[in-house]
């Protein structure tokens, strides 16, 4: 029997029982729902929704002449303030965003980098997560710890360490260029390149892929694999037909935890990137810490968030239809 059908059956049973209507129990369940969903809901409403609304409002305002925001009400003209300042609300920042193909290009480029990072992370993290989930219990915790431990040191320090590794005087550079030289290819520089940006991105986000994958793989029942083996499935078939489909929720959450933060990242391209490595994160940061254009920064961020949510929705839809197909 497939997973889906099984789930459907349990849900059906739950409904049946609700209909039977043990009032006390449903009341209790509702209380539980209230207690479980309530606190995060309240916390996030206060500390996320309200600030976000402020930011959305910001995107419809004028930037202040000296940074920050222009006033909503007409300014009191004093000796300090020159006349003719804008105030109130406007679509100006949105118009600016859509007036130039430039910003669409940066979006595309950033999504490409995020996708590449996610893919590389997945390829590197999967065997690791699989191995951890199949190790003995006391080893497992240690191995997870070893994945997370580097991240207790400072993020920037780790990036700077990569500067040393990829630098022109490093052993790695010498080795690669010696190989390339032997093949008759002109030497390359590793640091300050899109390659370095990708390495840095993967390095920073790898645990975000390993952890969800591991937590998912760990719960798989080894009996399923044994059963598949008994039925004569090859090693590859066992992975592809059993382990991989079951691990998809882990893959998706890992992908989300890598893909999305990469889009907002500006430090890695700043430090490891070359003269062309500008991503959407850099652009947004620049609006707040450079150009002092908060409305446009908010517009960029809103567009980014919308794009991410759209992609997430698409991915969820694909996942659902893929799972559905397999179930039928």
């Amino acid at each position: 029997m497939t997973k889906k059908a099984e789930q459907g059956r349990t849900e059906g049973r739950a409904e049946e029982r609700a209909e039977v209507g043990i009032k006390e129990r449903t009341a209790r369940q509702r209380m539980a729902k209230f207690f479980v969903a309530g606190p995060p809901l309240v916390f996030l409403t206060v500390f996320f929704v309200v600030p976000s609304l402020i930011m959305i409002a910001t995107s419809f305002r004028f930037p202040g002449e000296f940074g920050g925001l222009a006033p909503i009400a007409a300014p009191v003209v004093s000796a300090h303030v020159s006349q003719g300042l804008e105030y109130g609300f406007t679509l100006e920042a949105y118009q600016f965003f859509f007036s130039d193909i430039l910003y669409a290009k940066i979006f595309l480029k950033s999504f490409a980098v995020a996708a590449a990072t996610t893919l590389i992370c997945l390829v590197m993290a999967y065997p690791l997560a699989l191995l951890i989930s199949r190790s003995k219990k006391h080893l497992r915790n240690l191995m997870v710890l070893l994945v997370v431990l580097p991240f207790a040191s400072n993020f920037l320090i780790r990036i700077y360490a990569w500067m040393i590794i990829l630098g022109p005087e490093s052993g790695l550079s010498y080795f690669i260029n010696a190989v390339l030289g032997a093949l008759g290819i002109t030497p390359i520089t590793l640091l300050f390149s899109p390659f370095a940006v990708l390495v840095g991105m993967v390095y920073v986000h790898l645990p975000f892929m390993v952890l969800p994958l591991y937590t998912n793989l760990e719960k798989h029942d080894p009996a399923l694999l044994d059963a598949a083996q008994d039925l004569g499935a090859t090693r590859w078939q066992r992975f592809w037909r059993v382990t991989w489909p079951l691990s998809l929720p882990g893959v998706f959450s890992g992908a989300a935890l890598v893909f999305i933060p990469v889009l907002g990242m500006f430090a890695v391209p700043d430090i490891l990137g070359g003269t062309g490595d500008i991503l959407i994160g850099n652009l947004i940061k620049d609006q707040f810490l450079g150009t002092r254009d908060w409305p446009f920064g908010s517009v960029l961020a809103i567009m980014l968030t919308l794009a991410v949510l759209a992609i997430a929705g698409l991915a969820a839809w694909f996942a659902r239809s893929a799972v559905g197909q397999r179930a039928t």
Partner: peptide
């Protein structure tokens, strides 16, 4: 709830920082 929970992950850090500061 899912939207509330997952959007902060999708939001660039700097925006969360500035909006929380304003808030």
């Amino acid at each position: 709830l899912p939207v509330l929970v997952f959007t902060p992950v999708a939001m660039p850090e700097i925006l969360l920082g500035v909006s929380l500061l304003l808030f």
